[in-house]
Deep mutational scan, measured.
Amino acid sequence: KELVLVLYDYQEKSPREVTVKKGDILTLLNSTNKDWWKVEVDDSQGFIPAAYLKKL
């Protein structure tokens, strides 16, 4: 599985998104959309702007 590093805090703005903190390491589930990547946070899944993430 691929991991990503969160570069900036992000507060979810819709139920399909997730809240993350700078420095979090998350599992990347889908990066086919260049603007929004799907990640797994704890036991939930959701989208975060790709610009907030860096592949490890």
Rank of each mutant, 00 (worst) to 15 (best):
K1V: 12
K1P: 12
E2T: 13
L3C: 13
L3F: 14
L3R: 10
V4G: 03
V4E: 00
V4L: 03
V4R: 00
V6T: 02
V6Y: 01
L7P: 00
D9F: 04
D9S: 08
Y10D: 02
Y10W: 08
Q11E: 13
Q11I: 14
Q11D: 12
Q11S: 13
Q11A: 13
K13S: 09
K13F: 10
K13M: 11
S14K: 07
P15G: 11
P15A: 12
P15Y: 08
P15R: 10
P15C: 11
P15H: 10
P15T: 09
R16I: 11
R16K: 11
R16G: 15
R16V: 10
R16L: 13
E17S: 09
E17I: 06
E17Y: 07
E17K: 09
E17W: 07
V18Q: 04
V18Y: 06
T19E: 04
T19V: 06
T19R: 08
T19K: 08
T19W: 05
T19P: 03
V20N: 00
K21C: 10
K21H: 11
K22C: 07
K22H: 06
K22Y: 04
K22T: 06
K22I: 04
G23K: 01
G23I: 01
G23R: 02
D24T: 10
D24K: 07
D24M: 15
I25E: 01
I25D: 00
L26E: 01
L26G: 08
L26D: 00
T27P: 11
T27K: 13
L28V: 06
L28K: 01
L28E: 00
L29M: 06
L29K: 04
L29R: 03
N30S: 13
N30H: 06
N30P: 04
N30I: 07
S31K: 06
S31A: 12
S31E: 12
S31F: 06
S31T: 10
N33T: 05
K34D: 11
K34W: 06
K34V: 09
K34E: 11
D35F: 15
D35V: 13
D35P: 02
D35C: 14
D35H: 15
W36R: 03
W36K: 03
W37S: 01
W37M: 02
W37E: 00
W37K: 00
W37L: 02
K38S: 08
V39E: 00
V39L: 03
E40D: 06
V41M: 10
D42P: 07
D42R: 14
D42M: 13
D43F: 09
S44C: 12
S44Y: 14
S44E: 12
Q45V: 14
Q45N: 09
G46H: 15
G46Q: 10
G46I: 15
G46W: 13
G46V: 15
G46S: 08
G46P: 08
F47M: 08
F47Q: 04
F47K: 03
F47G: 02
I48G: 01
I48A: 13
I48Q: 00
P49A: 04
P49I: 05
P49V: 04
A50G: 05
A51N: 13
A51F: 11
A51T: 11
A51H: 13
A51Q: 13
A51S: 14
Y52V: 14
L53C: 15
L53A: 09
K54R: 11
K54N: 05
K55Y: 09
K55M: 10
L56A: 03
L56M: 09
